[in-house]
Simulated assay, not measured.
Amino acid sequence: MKIKPILLALAIVSTLFAGCGQRNNQNTAPKTGTETKTETKTENGKNEITDGTTTASIVDNEAAFEKAISKTGTWIIATLNDITTNKELSLDGEFKNGKKDKEGKDVIQRKIALYTQDENRNVTARFTLTAPKLTINSPEASIQHGTFKGDLYVSSKNFKLVDATVDGNVYFTNEEAKSTFQIDNKSKITGKQELKK
């Protein structure tokens, strides 16, 4: 039977191509990449749904970071080094991460990833984002595994610090933002936390 040798040869070639396509880089940005539909509001006020892929904006400079955190950016912003700016920054827009919840609804999420990781998702490097002010307007947002140096203004619900440091103050601009704020036991805030309308 000639079919078995042909199938065996195809399997070997497929394995070789898959192996050659893998990267051996130990430090990579947080992984993502799933199909999703994005709903945006057009200039005339109508909602428009577009198909796309939710991927990380992997950034290493101030201009790329500012674009990634805008309302036309991506759901995850991953830095590759420290970033410093003299501008006041704002994390804007509502984004879906490509996953579904138990009811089958799209999961809303936004993440500033101040770290790199290895293939086993172990954090390999942590970075610092420095700005005079960062306002969190995106719902379900987080800062993870790095340091924000400056004052943080939280205007949206369910903001999280995950293994992250805020070297500055955290101001909540409304009661909902304050009451839904979450901080894990690896995170810290060096300044005060208060409601500031």
Rank of each mutant, 00 (worst) to 15 (best):
K196F: 15
T38S: 12
Y153V: 09
E35D: 10
I49Q: 10
F65P: 02
E88M: 04
E62R: 00
D118M: 10
I3Y: 04
T72L: 12
D106M: 08
I77M: 08
K192P: 02
K160C: 04
E66I: 15
T74Q: 14
V13W: 08
S57P: 09
T130M: 05
I3L: 07
K133N: 04
E35I: 09
F17E: 10
M1F: 13
L80S: 13
S156Q: 03
S155P: 00
N81C: 13
K192F: 01
T180A: 05
K157M: 02
K188T: 14
T74C: 11
T38K: 12
S70Y: 03
L89W: 06
N44Y: 13
T15E: 10
E48K: 15
A164L: 00
T180I: 04
A164V: 00
P139D: 09
I58V: 15
K197E: 15
M1G: 12
K41F: 11
F127Q: 02
T38E: 13
I183D: 02
K157A: 09
I76W: 03
Q109G: 00
V123E: 02
N185Y: 11
F181Y: 15
K149N: 14
R126L: 01
E103I: 03
N47P: 04
T54W: 12
F181D: 00
K96C: 09
N169V: 14
R126S: 05
Y153F: 15
G104A: 05
T173P: 02
G98S: 03
A56D: 03
T15Q: 11
L134V: 01
S57V: 08
K37S: 13
R110C: 04
H145L: 06
T28L: 11
N25L: 09
A9F: 08
S155E: 09
G104W: 00
V166T: 06
F17K: 07
E43T: 10
E48Y: 13
P139S: 07
N25C: 00
I6T: 08
W75F: 15
L129H: 02
T165L: 10
E176M: 06
E88Y: 02
K31D: 02
Q26V: 15
D167R: 07
L152G: 01
A78S: 14
Q182G: 05
R23I: 13
K196C: 07
A68L: 07
K41C: 07
A18N: 11
A78N: 03
D92Y: 11
D118L: 12
K96W: 13
N27W: 03
R121A: 12
K188W: 10
Y171H: 11
E88Q: 10
N120L: 06
T180D: 01
I76S: 06
K31V: 12
E194W: 03
Q182E: 09
T34R: 08
G98L: 02
S57A: 15
N25K: 11
E103N: 15
E62Q: 13
L89M: 12
L80E: 14
K186L: 10
N169C: 14
N24W: 07
A56F: 01
A9Q: 09
F181L: 03
K178V: 09
T124V: 04
A63H: 08
K192H: 04
I143P: 00
N81K: 14
G191S: 01
T74Y: 07
S70D: 05
S187K: 03
G73E: 01
T165C: 11
T165E: 14
E39Q: 11
R126A: 02
D106V: 05
